[in-house]
C-alpha cells in the first residue's frame, strides 16, 4: 500500500464525493434545524441570513474541491508514464471536479427561494 498522503493512493478516489456528502448533509440538516429554531420571516423571500450562510458554506466547499481537483490533475500529469498511478489521480481529479459541479448545481435554488416555506 502507498502512503496515505500520496495522491496515488486509491483511497483518495472517492474523496471528492465524501466531501460532497458531508456538505449535502450539512446543507439539508442545517437548513432544517435553522428553520425549526430561528426561521427567517417569509416576507424576506430569498434575501435572508440563512440563504447567505448556506451560500457562503457552499462557496467555501466549492473552492476546496476545485483546489483538490487541481492538485490531483497535476499529479496525474506528473504520472504520465505510470498508467496505474495516472488512473488513480485522474479519477480522483474527476471525482473532485464532479463533486464541485454538483455542489454548484444543487445550491442554485438557494438564490431564488425562501428558505423555510
Amino acid at each position: 500500500m502507498r502512503h496515505l498522503r500520496s495522491p496515488y493512493n486509491p483511497i483518495h478516489i472517492p474523496l471528492g464525493f465524501i466531501i460532497w456528502s458531508l456538505w449535502f448533509v450539512a446543507l439539508y440538516g442545517g437548513l432544517s434545524v435553522a428553520c425549526e429554531v430561528a426561521a427567517p420571516p417569509a416576507e424576506a423571500a430569498q434575501w435572508t441570513w440563512l440563504n447567505a450562510l448556506l451560500l457562503a458554506g457552499t462557496l467555501a466547499i466549492v473552492v476546496l474541491l476545485a483546489a483538490l481537483t487541481h492538485g490531483f490533475w497535476r499529479a496525474s500529469q506528473r504520472a504520465r508514464q505510470r498508467p496505474k498511478e495516472r488512473f488513480v489521480a485522474w479519477t480522483a481529479a474527476g471525482v473532485n471536479a464532479i463533486a464541485a459541479l454538483a455542489c454548484v448545481f444543487i445550491a442554485l435554488p438557494i438564490l431564488s427561494m425562501p428558505p423555510c416555506l
Partner: peptide, 15 residues
C-alpha cells in the same frame, strides 16, 4: 418538507 430543501433533492435527482 420546506420547499428549498425539496429543491436540493430535485436538483440532485436531475444531476
Amino acid at each position: 418538507i420546506p420547499h428549498l430543501a425539496q429543491a436540493f433533492f430535485s436538483a440532485a435527482s436531475m444531476l
